[in-house]
Amino acid sequence: MEGAIDTLLILVVLSGLYMLATSDLVAAIRATALQGLVLALLPLLVRGHVDLHGAALGAGTLALKVFAIPTLLRAALRRAGVNREVEPLLGFGASLSLAGVLVVLSIALGQRLAVPGAPPSSLLVPCAFATVLIGLLILVGRTKALTQVLGYLVLENGIFLFGLAVLRAMPLIVELGVLLDILVAVFVMGIVMHKIRRTFDHIDTHAMTELRD
């Protein structure tokens, strides 16, 4: 069981790395869906048995992160009508290498963090940490608004992994509330992106720097 959980955790990190390295936005959205799929499976594995809480959470995650959010993102991409290429601020090779270093460091150092209670796997905290860092890297290292949304989603996925460590403390309603919040956030971001595209003719956030003191 622990081996399976470990493999799934590494898969989350790998899909994050793939999102950093790919130059195709649609492939990046698919990688987000893959992360969501893994995250939907994890609570069931962590709890060790299928119960209402785990099943509901898994179903909710599946519906939102694998279907609803990627659909919203693809629709936003289509409506924006922009180039499907990712335009990186930080080159692909540099971001992949930097991310690789960060992942290795977080796995190496994350084992030292003494998490009270028995976390389901010794890789949980390091992988969560690594995913958060990868999400931040995507957010900061890319210029297109859509990729910033993807970075935000990866960041939230990493935080979700941390939440697995305190699974018993969060009531189901709140977890679902968090998921809904993310869904609505992506929805609103899509709307704003559409407006940006209509006004600016592009969604390059680094060209939107007119407000300053």
Binding site: D6, I10, V13, G100, V103, V104, I107, A108, Q111, S122, L123, P126
Partner: peptide
């Protein structure tokens, strides 16, 4: 990553 996972965990 495989190496560091092997070494630590």
């Amino acid at each position: 990553i495989g190496l560091v996972v092997r070494l630590t965990a």
